[in-house]
């Protein structure tokens, strides 16, 4: 198949980009996701997961049942911030001078 064929339509990632990631040692959907953003879009890999795993299986020779599944992320469906947000009487925002400041990092 033409290597420019789109596999992940949300992030517009094609076969060539996926194969390049595999060439660089990626063995799982999540490895490829972090290198290319494949599967990070609105559908959260629900559409492209099987096609990508088939490419991995074909390229590496690993049987399909040994190619691991992408890690699933909540929420299962896209949800509005206000719908998700906890009810609060007043604000429970933590102080930035407390522990919170470092939390975005690793």
């Amino acid at each position: 198949m033409d290597k420019s064929t789109i596999v992940c339509r949300c992030e517009e990632i094609n076969i060539d980009e996926i194969e390049t990631a595999i060439k660089n040692g990626a063995e799982t959907f999540d490895d490829i996701k972090r290198l290319t953003r494949c599967g990070m879009g609105p559908c959260q890999s629900k559409t492209c997961f099987y096609p990508v795993n088939e490419i991995i299986a074909e390229y590496t020779g690993m049987p399909l049942n040994e190619v691991s599944l992408p890690r699933l992320r909540m929420p299962l469906k896209m949800v509005r911030m206000s719908t998700l947000a906890q009810d609060s009487e007043g604000s429970n925002v933590v102080s930035v001078f407390g522990e919170s400041v470092e939390d975005g990092e690793s």
Partner: peptide, 19 residues
């Protein structure tokens, strides 16, 4: 819609207004 679960394994659902 079931959107996830809580730490105590209760299922969380949303009706589009609240969760």
């Amino acid at each position: 819609i079931m959107i996830g679960s809580y730490r105590n394994e209760n299922i969380g659902v949303t009706d589009g207004e609240k969760t």
